[in-house]
Design a protein around this nucleic acid. Structure first.
Length: 282
DNA sequence: AAACGATGCAACCGCACTTAT
DNA sequence: AATAAGTGCGGTTGCATCGTT
């Protein structure tokens, strides 16, 4: 389908917004709501396209937006969430109250990439590991998440079908990193007390974690076609190869049937398998 | 003080998805 | 089911500001 350019009509203003325009937009939305964005500028008396109005409101004028510098905790959260979600700025923004996708994207490109670039991970970064095998899951970083996002939403985002082609689906190897590092780090720190309790209970069960065949850490993901696997495909592939999947039913019983799918299962298994890494100082 | 480059950020562009008809 | 319109998202651009020479 061919779409007409947003601002093709003559007389529509572009570029920075003036305080007067801001005030008009704020007043209109406060009185009438934004309704149809395309119709809004005409109704409000603005010589802007609807898209520009929406962007201005969403990124700057909305009262929900928190202005000012990002805190260290917010930056750490962004790094962690980016590790999990990739360049899906809106998904990241959804977990940082008051921050917009655009703002987060800018912070990422201007500050955080540099931090990560300068950061060299410590050689022995494992805090603990059931099998104490340094050659297994790849370690990247562990950041303490201060925000109250929860895993189910993250899982939902990771599994979201049809995300933008500009943001590639997670490959199975990325999934491994996600589950081993990020999910564990997130769950252990995001205040999900129920989950922590469940994990503690499982931890006390000597037999919960099966012996892991060494090939799991080396063979499984490399056999998948990482270049072309979409998330659903990766999910299936991993499910097939995952050495623990037979334990799913048991694990669900152990936590009162609250785990609903394999992602939850992996999540718990990975947490149990350790791989909490040191928090890097940049 | 002027010139220049680097940086940060607001805004735009174009594509893809969703919803309505 | 097909098409059109509306919306959301991520990548990119352009400009103002800051720092350095």
């Amino acid at each position: 389908m061919v779409r007409a350019p947003c601002c093709e009509k003559m007389g529509l203003k572009k570029g920075p917004w003036t305080p007067e325009e801001d005030q008009i937009l704020i007043s209109y939305i406060q009185s009438n709501g934004h309704g149809n964005w395309r119709a809004l500028p005409k109704l409000a008396g603005l010589l802007r396209c609807g898209k520009s109005c929406r962007l201005r409101w969403a990124n700057y004028l909305s009262p929900d937006i928190k202005r000012g510098n990002f805190t260290r905790e917010e930056e750490d959260s962004i790094i962690q969430l980016h590790e999990m979600l990739g360049n899906r700025w809106s998904a990241i923004a959804a977990r940082l109250p008051g921050r917009t996708d655009n703002e987060i994207k800018n912070v990422w490109h201007t500050h955080l990439k540099k931090r990560l670039k300068n950061y060299q991970p410590p050689q022995n970064s494992k805090r603990h590991s059931k099998n104490n095998n340094d050659s297994k899951a790849p370690s990247t970083s562990q950041i303490t998440l201060k925000n109250s996002h929860n895993f189910s939403n993250i899982q939902e985002d990771i599994n979201r079908p049809g995300s933008s082609p500009n943001s590639p689906q997670l490959s199975s190897s990325e999934m491994s990193t996600v589950t081993a590092d990020s999910m564990a780090a997130t769950a252990m720190t995001n205040g999900d007390q129920t989950m922590v309790k469940q994990l503690d209970e499982m931890d006390s069960s000597e037999n919960f974690i099966p012996e892991i065949d060494e090939s799991f850490w080396t063979d499984d993901l490399s056999t998948a076609d990482n270049s072309s696997l979409d998330m659903a495909g990766a999910h299936e592939e991993l499910q097939f190869q995952f050495p623990f999947h037979a334990m799913k039913q048991e694990s669900m019983e152990m936590v009162g049937g609250k785990l609903e799918d394999d992602m939850d299962f992996w999540y718990n298994v990975f947490i149990k398998s350790g791989d909490l890494l040191e928090l890097p100082e940049f």
